[in-house]
């Protein structure tokens, strides 16, 4: 791993620190950690060549045995580099171990399974297929961060009864990026959502963009130890992406 990726994401040390302080492994915080990381772990394993079932089993096993059972949190040390490397190191170790034993998580009693939302397991999109395991881990992490941000933004506008703001943002910005297509003309949207004119639609878009910006920054702030490094963190994330898109 290059220096860039080493630096990438001190993420969730704050979470880990909190969990340590509270000393309660069953706390909501550890649940949050699972929630944030199971998708990246699952994608990583899939890109390593494990099929869907095996990928799920290994993800389960890893969180059950390593994260919960072997005091991973206690051994985590923020001064020793990124949480992500630490986690991946532990994961690789676990997978090698399991392969040797080759009976993965069959012995985890059903009632003890970690509550991971496999129903919503991301289908491995062709985009992820083209990435290497570590890139896919990061991709999934990033997508998850964005999805959380987007949900919060959407909720905020729906609650305030400003659905059209969200609609304009979704169709003008989000869908084109997601579906890789041209954005719809503002004029069409004005007709569909009964918006006064294009200038108004354009203002609405800018407004949601700013809200998105602030929520995203807030989300990133949650993942690092101090607010001051938000900017640095985001820049690291972006640098990482630039590097990745050159590959």
């Amino acid at each position: 791993m290059g220096g860039l990726r080493q630096k990438f994401l001190t993420t969730h040390w704050s979470l880990v620190e909190d969990i340590k302080k509270q000393g309660d492994k069953e706390s909501a915080l550890i649940g949050l950690l699972l929630e944030r990381y199971w998708k990246p772990v699952y994608c990583y394993l899939r890109c390593k060549g494990h099929d869907n079932e095996r990928g799920k089993d290994l993800t389960q096993g890893f969180f059950h045995e390593v994260v919960l059972g072997r005091n991973l949190i206690d051994r985590a040390d923020a001064s020793k580099g990124s949480f992500r490397s630490f986690l991946l190191h532990a994961l690789n170790h676990y997978v090698t171990d399991e392969q040797r034993k080759d009976h993965a998580c069959k012995r985890i009693p059903k009632e003890k399974l970690v509550p991971l939302d496999f129903v919503g397991a991301p289908e491995l999109h062709e985009v992820v297929d083209q990435l290497n395991p570590e890139e896919s881990f990061n991709y999934a992490w990033k997508a998850d961060l964005l999805e959380r941000t987007l949900s919060t933004v959407k909720e905020c506008y729906i609650k305030q009864g400003m659905e059209n703001h969200w609609n304009v943002f979704r169709e003008r910005l989000l869908q084109p990026l997601r579906e890789n297509q041209e954005p719809r003309p503002l004029r069409q949207m004005c007709r569909q959502y009964n918006i006064k004119d294009e200038a108004t639609a354009s203002h609405m878009l800018e407004t949601v963009k700013r809200r998105f910006q602030s929520v995203l920054r807030e989300q990133v702030r949650h993942t690092v130890l101090t607010g001051q490094v938000v900017e640095e963190e985001l820049k690291e994330i972006l640098k990482f992406f630039e590097k990745q898109s050159e590959i």
């Binding site: 991301p122 997508a143 998850d144 964005l146 999805e147 989000l174 990026l177 995203l216 972006l238």
Partner: peptide, 14 residues
């Protein structure tokens, strides 16, 4: 949902 978008598109959002 944004999973499945191109990495550079995620980048644009970020």
């Amino acid at each position: 949902s944004i999973f499945g978008a191109r990495p550079d598109h995620l980048d644009q959002l970020l």
